[in-house]
Design a protein around this nucleic acid. Structure first.
Lengths: 127, 127
DNA sequence: GATGTAGTTTACCACTTAGTTAATTAACTA
DNA sequence: TAGTTAATTAACTAAGTGGTAAACTACATC
């Protein structure tokens, strides 16, 4: 189907760590050396190097060589693929807001105090 | 900032597995019992149960009790949050397509055969 | 060539993950 | 009540993850 499974997995897996998301956030405002990236983090340089490798393998960053520095920069295309995947589900989160809205309106209209189960409004295509 | 870090991490982490993405894909077409979900998978039921727990903890699915079945259904709101996070970077993937486009045009116009480095077009706010 | 700075590699650790089989719980059914 | 079906829990294993400290590589400069 869509994008190769492993590529998407690598992307989501890379995004699953707050440190790595912070690195991407930093790189969004321009390229940075490894030590610049490491400075605000509560961990050692080797740990940052490892995170960078994960991001690299996922294709989310690239590194150049400039004298003794290895400046990193963002490559956003895998983010587009992740975004495309998640977007398939857009209608579901929109639907659920609709259902919540309906439910709240129903509540207000009836002014019920009994414990109503909002799940009752879910559609069930399987029976 | 945006959504709580751990929530986003849990969501991305849950999405980082092809089996779990397949489960969400299946649930997009209506709720399903655990064994229905397990059938197409090349793994045992307990393994599927574990994946469902991961999805549950990430808030991506919920399970009901109906006789001896535990039908699962999709809850898409965490997907919206993930989508919102990734969407911060939209301009970057659009930019990179622009740069590719520019580059290809430049190539065609000049018809150069020397090894041009497309990275040269990256902006660099840091110097 | 010696020294300092930037970064990676190696070896190790504790913890988590994805899977298994076997046992257990819970509900329906004859 | 005995048996069947649906699913979870428990105990275990192999592999992966995120971190460390210490050693090493590469470049720059004195």
């Amino acid at each position: 189907m869509q994008t190769s499974n492993d590529k998407l997995s690598a992307t989501f897996s890379a995004l699953a760590d707050p440190t790595r998301r912070a690195i991407l956030g930093r790189l969004a405002s321009g390229e940075a050396s490894v030590s610049e990236l490491a400075k605000p983090m509560k961990m050692t340089m080797p740990a940052v190097t490892k995170h960078l490798k994960v991001l690299q393998k996922a294709g989310l960053i690239r590194q150049e060589r400039r004298a003794q520095w290895r400046p990193c920069y963002l490559v956003a295309t895998p983010l587009k693929e992740a975004s495309d995947w998640v977007f398939q589900y857009k209608k579901f989160w929109e639907e659920s807001f609709d259902r919540l809205d309906e439910y709240l309106k129903a509540l207000q209209a009836q002014n019920v105090s009994e414990t109503v189960n909002p799940k009752g409004k879910r559609k069930n295509k399987d029976e």
